[in-house]
Design a protein around this nucleic acid. Structure first.
Length: 108
DNA sequence: AGACTGACGATCC
DNA sequence: GGGATCGCCAGTC
């Protein structure tokens, strides 16, 4: 059951899969990814999974922001990457979640 | 095996 | 609405 999409993957591995399905020009929160990954509440581990688990260079990890729409600290390039995809930022430096909040894999 | 840390979230002021 | 504090989960040392 459970088809062959997964197979005993750890949180980090599923997180990568979830983030990979985020459409361009959209952004998702760590909590949302954690939930989709099957680990609700593990938002903290999600961030670490992306930080330490940077496997692919084409991986859209810059589409992952916190609940405030804030980009990752110490990562100034994230904002530039999102703007390049059409994502707009506010003066306070937060992503316009009101327009770019990802609805999930079912809300494409 | 155990303890600390951390790219967060929610709640309180 | 913004800022600060506590709590939760899993990974890394």
């Amino acid at each position: 059951m459970e088809n062959g999409k997964q197979g005993g993957n750890s949180l980090a591995d599923e997180v990568l899969t979830v983030v990979a399905v985020i459409p361009r020009g959209k952004v998702a929160t760590y909590g949302q990814i954690a939930d989709l990954a099957g680990h609700p509440g593990a938002s903290r581990s999600v961030g670490r999974a992306l930080q330490t688990g940077h496997h692919r260079a084409d991986f859209p990890r810059h589409r992952v922001v916190n609940s405030s729409g804030r980009t990752a600290p110490g990562w100034g390039a994230q904002r530039d990457l999102l703007e390049a995809e059409g994502v707009t930022f506010k003066e306070n430096g937060c992503v316009d979640m009101a327009k770019h909040a990802w609805s999930g894999p079912s809300g494409t």
